[in-house]
């Protein structure tokens, strides 16, 4: 075993962390939920958007941020804005569309040896109870194989939001929280989150071109707001 010559003695309690740069959460239902550690204390958070709008060509969500400390304290901030900065495209299984839910779940199978297929496709996804593989379109009009998770199979994997300045005093966290980034990962395990992933994906694609597709943007905003309010 390799021995490091200078042994570190990390002591989170005396850490010099002064600024909270980012927090990351998973979309569960309508909320992004996660946790972070600040000054040796763990905080669970949930950001529940209630409205969505386009501000300066950027998707902006507004809603409630709830924080729970490991000591049981709870703080709620209303009217927190989350401006979408950028996204990361998801790779692998595309979102399950509701109309296909009855007995379907995955993207196309890869045709390789079992060993290689094990490596190239996560073995766990197709083992989800009740879900079975199905054939998706495999070729373009010239008969060339498609690229996974692109074109009609493209979806958003992570949404990176800039939160409006948070008051560390109100949240009782001794850190500079004036510019916290929320890394919202879309790996849905419930129907609401699945729907939201589809809407976010369509919205991001519509906003992403040189000329945003206004009508698709508006349609998806309406759906987004309906889901947030439901």
């Amino acid at each position: 075993m390799l021995i490091q010559r200078k042994k570190q003695t990390p002591d989170p309690a005396t850490a010099t962390q002064t600024k909270l740069h980012s927090i990351h959460g998973l979309l569960r239902g309508r909320a992004f939920e996660g946790q972070f550690v600040a000054r040796a204390k763990t905080y669970r958070f949930a950001f529940n958007p209630t409205t969505a709008a386009i501000v300066d060509q950027k998707l902006t969500l507004s809603g409630r941020l709830r924080l729970n400390s490991s000591q049981g304290e709870q703080v709620v901030l209303e009217n927190v804005n989350a401006k979408l900065l950028a996204t990361q495209g998801g790779v692998g299984g595309s979102p399950v569309r509701r109309q296909l839910l009855t007995g379907t779940a995955q993207t196309a199978q890869t045709s390789t040896s079992e060993q290689k297929m094990e490596q190239e496709r996560g073995p766990e996804t197709e083992l989800q109870p009740g879900l079975h593989a199905f054939e998706s379109p495999k070729s373009d009009s010239l008969g060339r194989p498609n690229v996974e998770s692109t074109d009609t199979q493209a979806f958003v994997g992570v949404l990176y939001f800039q939160l409006s300045p948070l008051s560390s005093q109100a949240l009782r966290i001794p850190l500079d929280m004036s510019a916290v980034q929320l890394n919202g990962r879309l790996a849905p395990t419930d129907d609401v989150a699945r729907d939201l992933q589809l809407v976010f994906s369509d919205l991001v694609l519509a906003l992403g071109g040189k000329q945003p597709d206004e009508s698709t943007v508006q349609q998806n905003l309406e759906v987004l707001n309906r889901i947030f309010k439901s």
Partner: peptide, 17 residues
Amino acid sequence: VKDSEHPYTTDPGKPFM
């Protein structure tokens, strides 16, 4: 590493793993 903790970004519809 977990992507969620170590971000990178891509163009819509053009993923990179």
